[in-house]
């Protein structure tokens, strides 16, 4: 009897936390489904009796949301693919090849971890201007196609491979490229996907840099687009709510699909195992 009371209390606690965590998202969804005159109604409407889906279509087609989302998708996927590729290559060299200045170069890779992008925006902004990249995809992508963290994580992961696997491949006539493609990459899939999802999340959520280097709707990412959207909060608040939900949906979908990789990526280095 006593244990069942405790279990009930436990569920009550969990439910209370869930309500607090979810409420801001929930109320945004509710408002997105209300007709505009019911937003800000007193007492507030907490459940939409006649959900209205038109706000979503309005937010989708009326604003530039679909454009923002497309830009964000292109940028974040390019950054993910690019940083995984450059990191895999560099990490392979650091893990399997001997070359002069190897330690120095690896030290420099680690050093980049200490230089957050926020610190270097001023010269980088000028560089983008000099390259003629202002308000283009390269401006949003190229500065982030290399990752010191990726190189570090992949090198650690690659070095876990037994040396005898490499020896066997050498005897079997497999050069570095084929060894990389046929053996190293397949065997390091967990680490690759964890880093990829982590890199994607970071790229998707960027705010300051896209704000600096874009000035037209065609190149604004969805995060910066939300800033434009926020400006509508007085004239069309329902569109703001619907737009916010639409902006958040892709990331919900991706993270739901890749939960395991995400957790592994986020906790890499923080918790052993």
């Amino acid at each position: 009897m006593r244990t069942s009371v405790r279990t009930s209390l436990r569920y009550l606690l969990l439910a209370a936390i869930a309500v607090v965590v979810l409420f801001p998202i929930y109320i945004t969804v509710v408002n997105a489904l209300l007709p505009v005159q019911l937003i800000g109604h007193r007492p507030p409407v907490l459940f939409p009796s006649h959900p209205l889906w038109s706000d979503f279509s309005q937010a989708w087609s009326g604003g530039s949301l679909s454009q923002y989302l497309r830009t964000s998708a292109i940028v974040s996927i390019s950054i993910t693919v690019g940083s995984v590729a450059t990191s895999v290559l560099a990490a392979y060299a650091f893990a399997f090849l001997e070359f002069p200045l190897k330690r120095v170069l690896f030290g420099l890779c680690l050093a980049t971890l200490m230089v957050p992008a926020e610190v270097t925006i001023i010269p980088n902004y000028r560089t983008i201007q000099v390259f003629g990249w202002f308000d283009t995809y390269p401006a949003l992508i190229v500065p982030f196609v290399a990752s010191g963290l990726g190189i570090f994580l992949f090198r650690q992961s690659f070095r876990q491979l037994p040396r005898e696997l490499r020896d066997a491949a050498v005897l079997d006539g497999y050069g570095h490229w084929r060894f990389l493609l046929r053996v190293v990459l397949p065997l390091n899939r967990p680490m690759l996907s964890a880093f990829a999802i982590f890199a994607w999340l970071g790229a998707w959520n960027q705010y300051l840099w896209p704000l600096l280097v874009t000035n037209t709707d065609a190149r604004r990412t969805v995060q910066v687009g939300l800033r434009q959207l926020e400006g509508l909060s007085v004239s069309a608040p329902n569109v703001v709510f619907a737009g916010t939900i639409l902006a958040a949906l892709p990331i919900f979908a991706v993270l739901f699909l890749f939960q395991r990789q995400l957790v592994r990526g986020l906790t890499a280095g923080a918790v052993k195992g």
Binding site: C109, V119, T120, N124, A146
Partner: peptide, 17 residues
């Protein structure tokens, strides 16, 4: 193999720093 990453590091991390 290290050139792609380092080109980006030099242009967008070390030089601007």
């Amino acid at each position: 193999m290290t050139v792609p990453a380092f080109a980006a590091f030099v242009i967008f991390v070390f030089y601007p720093l």
